[in-house]
Design a protein around this nucleic acid. Structure first.
Length: 572
DNA sequence: GCCGTTTTCGGCCCGACTGTTTTCAGTCG
């Protein structure tokens, strides 16, 4: 039972609470609890073992929600949610997920027309039955019908690795629109969240009306959901939602802050403003009618008595307290990274030659690149020896710019042993071990398996620890705190993998990893030269885990990295 | 449902846009 699963239950409980017309503040409390559970760094079970008081001590969790969590852990369900589902069809949850349909409208549709899921909603819209409802018109019916179809298309959130290129492409288009002076991608993409639900743009313009009009006229736009004087919301043909907000340049910082979120972070900031007799909105920080700060984010934070907080930390998971106490981390940045510690060449399943990989790594300014071809894909000792010579020759020819490491990625078998001969494990300069089969073992087995692999003297680091693949495979279950502690004690590294469909370990766990004090290595898992650019995703994930450069292996210069590896080999 | 050196009761972030009910509720981010 994952924290995500129970968070989802609370979100549904919130929707159901609104649907039946109970206090909207209850619904908000449930949503806050869901957000808290998602961001929690420890499994809720282990917290619950310390009793009801430990749960009720969490911010936003009181006796009632603590009881609901306990009941969920015992029975697999929240009784209140089950009780509401006795009277409310579960399908109304998907009806409420259609843009523009909230609790009141969903309830009206249900009571008057028996709309109980997406299919019956579509029927009611197509037949025109909705026209006799109050507040409905043929125009609204057509609009809703289009939104239902779009909603159908874009059920899933978009992985950051796909959203960022699309977002940047669209940013260019927005920047070149008439009347747009400046534009910026904000929202969850700026916070480097692993998946994004929409793209948010802030635009500076002296002619906001013209700018929003030009925006909704972009060829990629399929449906204009809202368009006003200072903002517009559209859906692209792909189903992706895009929000645009226009701000005068003197209010740019307040606009950025507002549009970047997260929602929870913004709410905390506004509460903080109120506590100081101030008001925070998207136009600035105000004392009465006097604007204290608005032009930069730094100024807005400063007016609230805080240093600037990096976007990846803005999740209300302790960053405000850290900022207040002057202990915000100096986050690792892309420029700190001197090499990539996972990549594949055509010697295993990569597409490109060593030469091409080296050139691409050089273009990124790297000092080194670990070529971690899959160990089991070498036919024999001679094949491995051939690659070693090829790497050596290339290093000589290129003068070590970048220096290629003769490395391997070795499969961790179900029992924790390694799928590679001893001579290869000894010969490789860097050994990355990862799970590629028998996913989904029970947690105790997976924990033992990974610890056994880490304890193997030849292993330097654990690759993509949870094995999750977007839309394909959930993270493996294991006692991660114990595994990370084991890596720390052994002086070994755990990878933060930036391959777009991996992004592993996921955010809350990335922070557990960083806090464990174990060494961390960043890798793109590139299977082609063009994939090496995913390092920004690995860095973003590390930032969301509050990582500083100190314990990240590949912030080290080559000689320090080689020293680290040599020491490990001398004292296995 | 949660929370508190202004409170254990009475509050709970703030504003834009839509549609249509001529003054505002619903929805969203």
């Amino acid at each position: 039972m994952s924290n995500e699963a129970i968070a989802q239950q609370f979100l549904e409980l919130a929707d159901l609470t609104e649907f039946v017309g109970d206090s909207p503040f209850k619904a908000r409390a449930y949503r806050q609890a869901a957000q808290l559970l998602e961001s929690l760094q420890t499994p809720i079970e282990s917290l619950a073992e310390r009793g009801r008081e430990a749960l009720a001590a969490l911010p936003g969790v009181g006796d009632a929600i603590a009881d609901k969590i306990l009941a969920y852990l015992q029975t697999g369900a929240i009784p209140k949610r089950e009780q509401l589902l006795q009277t409310v069809p579960a399908g109304v949850l998907e009806v409420m997920a259609v843009p523009g349909i909230g609790a009141k409208t969903a309830r009206l549709l249900y009571e008057q027309l028996g709309v109980h899921d997406l299919a019956s909603l579509r029927d009611a819209l197509m037949s025109g039955a909705v026209d006799r409802l109050p507040h409905f018109s043929p125009r609204k019916r057509e609009r809703l019908l289009r939104l239902v179809e779009l909603k159908h298309k874009s059920q899933r959130r978009t992985p950051l690795g796909l959203a960022l290129p699309r977002g940047r492409e669209l940013l260019q288009a927005i920047q070149s629109l008439d009347g747009v002076q400046q534009a910026m991608l904000c929202g969850s993409a700026r916070r480097m969240q692993e998946d994004v639900g929409d793209l948010d743009y802030l635009v500076a313009s002296d002619t906001p009306q013209a700018a929003t009009q030009a925006f909704v006229n972009l060829p990629a736009v399929a449906e204009v959901y809202a368009q006003g004087a200072t903002r517009a919301q559209v859906f692209l043909k792909s189903g992706l939602q895009v929000d645009l907000k226009v701000a005068p340049s003197e209010r740019w910082g307040a606009g950025m802050l507002y549009l970047t979120g997260s929602r929870a972070h913004s709410i905390r900031l506004r509460q903080r403003a109120l506590e100081r007799g101030l008001k925070l909105n998207e136009y600035g920080v105000w004392r009465g009618a006097e604007c204290l700060a608005a032009d930069t984010e730094e100024a807005v934070y400063a007016a609230l008595g805080l240093p600037w907080i990096p976007p990846p930390l803005r999740e209300d998971t302790g960053e405000l307290e850290a900022a207040e106490q002057g202990r915000l981390p100096r986050l690792v940045e892309r420029q700190d990274i001197r090499g990539d510690l996972q990549s594949h060449s055509h010697w295993s399943d990569g597409l490109d030659t060593l030469e091409t990989m080296a050139q691409a790594a050089d273009a990124l300014g790297y000092e080194y690149l670990a070529i971690t071809d899959h160990a089991h894909q070498f036919a024999d000792r001679e094949a491995f020896e051939q690659r070693r010579r090829a790497i050596e020759q290339l290093n000589q020819r290129r003068g070590g710019r970048p220096y290629l490491l003769n490395a391997i990625e070795v499969n961790i078998l179900p029992d924790g042993s390694l799928h590679a001969p001893d001579w290869m494990l000894r010969a490789a300069q860097f050994v990355l071990a990862g799970v590629h089969e028998a996913h989904g073992q029970p947690a105790p087995q997976m924990t033992a398996r990974l610890i056994r692999a880490l304890e193997h003297p030849a292993v330097d680091a654990l690759a993509h620890p949870t094995g999750r693949r977007y839309g394909k495979r959930p993270p493996n279950d294991a006692d991660w705190a114990r595994i990370f502690e084991c890596a720390r004690a052994l002086g070994k590294a755990i990878e933060i993998n930036g391959y777009p469909t991996r992004m592993d370990p996921p955010t809350p766990l990335a922070r557990v990893l960083v806090e464990s004090g174990a060494w961390v290595c960043l890798g793109t898992d590139a299977h082609a030269a063009r994939d090496l650019g995913a390092m920004e995703l690995a860095v973003g994930l590390a930032q969301r885990g509050w990582a500083t450069p100190e314990r990240i292996l590949n912030t080290r210069p080559l000689d320090a990295l080689m020293h680290w590896l040599a020491q490990r080999r001398e004292n296995p």
